[in-house]
Design a protein around this nucleic acid. Structure first.
Lengths: 209, 209
DNA sequence: CTGGTTGTTGCATTGACTGCACTATTGCAT
DNA sequence: ATGCAATAGTGCAGTCAATGCAACAACCAG
């Protein structure tokens, strides 16, 4: 069978300790992610090639692209397709929660699933600060899922302009998410914590500006 | 002097009829933009190369990249750096308006500056619908300006957590902008009109979901 | 007409990314 | 333990986006 590209999250505390095979694969992935961050921190995004990253991680250039679909996704340590999980989770929560609350809960869940390697956080913080173009890419990665969520909400809301409302609610919620990431990076705090603070600030103070 | 990349908006009703030179340049730009949209509508983003676009537009491949920094920016007909103008405008409006209103006014101003070619709107609508990855890129282009606006607001707000509040307000405002573009594309209506509707929906209905 | 400016082009090059065929490990069943 | 199937890693060749550079052509101002 053909080897494919994964783009699945990097983490140590992954579910399933699994076999030796999985472990090695994961170690390779982590090595590449770390190498990517280190190199970019040193020489800047444009000063680093996929080949350099591969070399420092001790793999062939081809292997690099078997794991990451782009150079940038290796740097960001991205984040496979959360879409399906998010959709299911949203459907479930909509049975007991109002729209906005349900959506925010789903997002919070997603954020808390991001692995937090204390070693890499500082590195990533520095990299994100010095390479703004990565921000767009990072947030772009979320975009895919948004469409699916809009569909779910559109279906759930049975009002007039439900599609428009769904779009707005999803966009605004992800705006809060991006704010949380920005603040989390800026202050080096846990993303979930930042998210909670953002929600509070938004409700208590941001509305009457 | 060296030829540089422009990435400046495509429009017919541009300020300054200018000399023949300007006219030709503009015609070339428009031809490329149109060619890009047409080709992508026909064969999809990945089925189109920069060379094909250049050929259909009747220019050399090199000229293509003299005008557009990426293949995608030609498709989107992107929009040069509105940053400085937006910053100045925001500073001015902050003297008479509250933060959120000032920001929204600046954005509305920016949207209304986008040229609206009825011929191309339909084409673009189709392309955007069938190529979701362009959405991320389109919104990514706005991201650059956001940082600057955050700085201005941070400075203007003299509260605690002013930076955090500034981030949130800007992110949310741009979320509304993206919503407006999405809806504008979806229904084929004027972006400014869509923006106004979004603002109203947000205030009147989206808050209590 | 003339010279300076600016848009256009060709050429060569780098680097991201992919398909394919092949090797090397590992997991599993016998 | 041994052999087979599945999957991770590799090498290679190729496509295409994007850029620097130098020559060239069109325009514009005097």
């Amino acid at each position: 069978m053909i080897s494919r590209t994964y783009d699945v999250p990097v983490s140590e505390n992954e579910t399933a300790p699994a076999g030796l095979r999985e472990q090695k694969k994961h170690a390779t992935r982590l090595a590449m992610h770390r190498a990517a961050l280190e190199l970019v921190a040193e020489d800047g995004l444009s000063g680093v090639t996929s080949e350099m990253i591969a070399r420092r991680a001790g793999v062939s250039p081809r292997t690099f692209f078997n794991h990451w679909s782009t150079k940038e996704s290796a740097i960001l340590g991205v984040v496979g397709d959360e879409g399906p999980r998010a959709v299911a989770s949203l459907r479930e929560k909509l049975e007991t929660l109002p729209v906005r609350a349900a959506l925010l809960a789903v997002i919070r869940e997603g954020i808390s699933r991001i692995p937090v390697d204390p070693e890499l956080r500082e590195l990533k913080k520095r990299v994100m600060a010095q390479e703004p173009s990565l921000h767009s890419i990072s947030t772009g990665n979320l975009q895919a899922m948004q469409t699916d969520l809009v569909d779910v909400l559109d279906e759930a809301l049975e009002e007039e302009y439900s599609r428009e409302l769904a779009i707005i609610v999803v966009q605004v919620s992800f705006a809060l998410t991006r704010s949380a990431f920005a603040i989390s990076m800026r202050r080096g705090i846990d993303p979930v914590l930042a998210f909670d603070q953002v929600i509070e600030l938004y409700h208590e103070r941001a509305r009457d500006l």
